[in-house]
Every structure is written in structure tokens, then in C-alpha cells.
Amino acid sequence: MSIPVTVIGGFLGSGKTTLVNRILAASPARTAVLVNDFGEINVDFDLVKAGDDLTFELSGGCICCSMAEGVGPAIKSALKTNPETILIEASGVGEPRRIAEFALLDPALRLDMIVTLANATALDRQIRDPLIGDTVARQFDGADLIVLNHADAARPDALTKAHDILRRLAPGRRVIETVEADLPLDLLTATSHAIFAAGPLEDDTDHGSIYGRDRFESDTPIPVETLEAMLQALPQSVLRLKGWVLLSEEPEVMLLQYVAGRWSLVPAPDAPRLTRLVSIASDPDFTIAESLKTQAFSAS
């Protein structure tokens, strides 16, 4: 099965390293991490559970060198270590969308999520700076999730302004405010096995008020049309939806991976014969059942 890749982007001071460390702390042991070692503070390597052999440096240098020493060769080396997931931290001027193209082209990889961080206290100033404004703006291209970090340190008007800027630069993208890049970890980790287990959802009390989790289970097959219509119509608030789907048209159970508007469906031969989906949304009231019902209703 292909290896999920998460790309983290954002300008200096946006909290990229903090987020990378958070993800590493919650990731499976065999997570390969590609970091730009040139940065302000290095990743806290203690958190890389499997140690040095899973850490790959992305060296800087001129653009011509990116062919020989950049992301491509680093991914190639990372794959040799049989990682379960790959986490790539873009450089301060890196465009996450362009890095993500590796995951889209390499059949061994699957793009899980592109997260771009913005600094709520500095975004307005950065965007107006002729030296870096366009560079900062380009980093939001293609982001699945924009994390407006340091929200606690920003004055209310600055926060409003930051949202306005993001709406203009990245219309239709999901934006979440955070403090210290604190995001629910089941949102960030592509392979949290807990999500597939039966039983009650673990309650993440810290985030309970902002995020809603839902689970849906059924052994009635779903028409593929209904599923696709539902996925297309999912509200902005749905950040991740994943699990097994029993489709009317397919003999095999399928594995659905939905991240912020992008999704993939692949056969899951070992899965039980049922539909079991789990969602995480920035709207506590979202339910999968409701969404499916709406589509089933409008289709009939």
C-alpha cells in the first residue's frame, strides 16, 4: 500500500517546527521526516522515535541543485527505510504544493495532506513587504488546511485582517485558528489505527469545543453515486473523513481517505464487510449520517 505523505509549509516564525514536532510525537514509529536543516530552530530530534536513520536533510543551495540534492533524492533515500509515513517540512521559502507533486507522481506515495501555517500576528505585515509578500502568498497555493497560528497573540483586528487576507489569497480553503499549532492529532496523522477500531471515539477534551468527531457504521451497501455526491457536497468544516465503505457496485470493501476536499478510494481486501467511517470537522454538529441521507434523498 502506498505511503502517506504530509507536507508542512509556512514562512519563518509561523510555527512550522512546533507543528512538525507535534506530528512526530503522535506518529507511528516508522515516520520518515524530511527537514530543512538550515532553518531557525531544528526539529527536536528526540521526538523522532526511530532515530537518525529516518531523518533526511534537505539541503538549501541554488535551484539547479534541487535536482541532485533536494526533495527527490531525499524521498528516494527515505523510501529505502520502509517508512509507514513520510513528513516533509518545506523550507521557509518552499512552495508546499510543488513538494506535494512528488507524492502525486510517485506510485509508492500518496499525498495525505498539505498544511500551510500563517502567523496571525505578522501576516498582514508580511504580505505587504515587497521583499517577501509574494513568497508568503504563494505558500498557500494548494494547501488543504491553513493553520492561522499564534491566534492568541494577535489583536482582534489583526485576526480579522488575517482572515480577510487568507480569504483573498486562498479562496475556499479551510482555515483553522490555533495557539502553538495545537491541532487534534487524529487530524494530522494519516495512519491513526485507533480510528478503525470499534468502540467509542477517544474524547480529545482539549479540542472538544471546536472540533466535532463523528462515526458512522452500517452494513447496507451505499450506491457509488450517493457516496460521490456526498463527498462533493461535504461542507468546508469537514477536515478529514476516512474508513471503509461497502459500495453497491463493488464486490470489495473500499478504503476511503478524504482530506479537505480531496479523496481517494482503493480496495481494502482485509476489511470487514461493512461501512465504517470516522470524521473530524471544525463544526461540532456535523454528522456523516446526515450528509449521506441528504444525498440519498436528493438522488431518489
Binding site: 538549501g60 521557509g92 521559502v93 509574494d134 513568497t135
Partner: peptide, 12 residues
């Protein structure tokens, strides 16, 4: 054409 690219953030 849009402005070009920095190899690293100017501050770095």
C-alpha cells in the same frame, strides 16, 4: 510576469 524567488528567506 510575477516576481522571482529567493533561495532562502531574506532574514536567513
Amino acid at each position: 510576469a510575477p516576481n522571482g524567488i529567493w533561495n532562502n528567506p531574506p532574514q536567513q
